[in-house]
């Protein structure tokens, strides 16, 4: 039956080919869809590919909500096969307009940071009917895919460290050279503590000049205590600072993730 319906759409061009694929997916057995969902939950499905397909196949206004575990981490409004808006619940905001010049670039950068943060974690996507207004920051799945292809390895070394340990972190803050361009995750009280600590770090270094240059010469990280069972990591690499609150029992994984990125230097 599946093949029969799909075979009615004939022709060789890309449009009919995509339509054929969409109809085939719509006609697929319910058990196959359940298997797809189980694979996504288990982290065996490519998140970006899934999102691109969902955007490309959505005509009527829909809000896609992306979950990692029980946490809703992003809401995407989609209509006419275009991504209209992307709202991250707790995650990083977009880069400044000076560096990213199109909506597709902004969304791609946000999705890549999100993907790096939850690398290997299972996900699920729910769909609800939504309203749309006058949209000026939209992009197609194709435009988004092009941006994702252009910047697959962008992201700093500390971003790669973060990708390896974010799943076990209670909270984290990643700051660039300009402290106002930070990304953060976790309870507000804890991220505020980390941000305040980063401010103290910068202020102290500015006041002590050359005496403290050793931490800047090579990448390094510092282990501090915030309670008997929670450690705070401050990692520096060039102009970036990463602060992570992590349960003490996960310190070895933190060290392993950091050495994986930096020990080949």
């Amino acid at each position: 039956m599946v093949q029969t319906k799909a075979e009615y759409v004939t022709g060789q061009d890309a449009t009919t080919s995509r339509l054929r694929q969409a109809i085939a997916r719509l006609c697929t057995d319910f058990s196959d869809l359940q298997a797809d969902r189980r694979d996504a939950d288990a982290g065996h499905v490519n998140l970006m590919q899934t999102l691109l397909v969902q955007i490309d196949e959505t005509m009527l206004p829909r809000q896609l909500t992306l979950f990692f575990g029980q946490d809703a981490v992003a809401k995407l409004r989609v209509c006419n096969r275009r991504l209209l808006s992307l709202e991250l619940t707790n995650g990083p905001g977009p880069e400044g307009p000076a560096r990213l010049t199109s909506a597709a670039q902004v969304y791609a950068q946000q999705l890549q940071q999100l993907s790096a943060t939850y690398q290997g974690t299972g996900f699920r996507i729910t769909r609800q009917v939504c309203e749309t207004g006058i949209e000026t920051q939209s992009c197609s799945a194709t435009q988004l895919a092009e941006c994702l292809t252009l910047q697959p390895q962008q992201g700093s070394r500390l971003t790669h460290v973060l990708a390896g340990i974010s799943a076990m972190a209670d909270a984290w803050v990643l700051q660039g050279e300009d402290a106002s361009e930070d990304s953060r995750f976790g309870p507000a009280a804890l991220t505020e503590q980390l941000t305040e600590l980063a401010h103290t770090d910068r202020t102290t270094k500015n006041n002590n000049g050359h005496a403290l240059r050793m931490p800047e010469i090579t990448p390094s990280y510092l282990v501090l205590s915030i309670s008997s069972d929670t450690k705070v990591i401050i990692a520096w690499d060039q102009a970036e600072t990463l602060l992570v609150a992590v349960p003490a029992q996960h310190l070895p994984e933190m060290g392993a993730a950091w050495h994986k990125v930096f020990s080949s230097l």
Partner: peptide
């Protein structure tokens, strides 16, 4: 900043690649 009474303030560890 913290209200926890059990903060271990006696040691600081710094890790570098070497």
């Amino acid at each position: 900043q913290t209200t926890s009474p059990n903060v271990d303030a006696a040691e600081v560890i710094v890790v570098t690649p070497q």
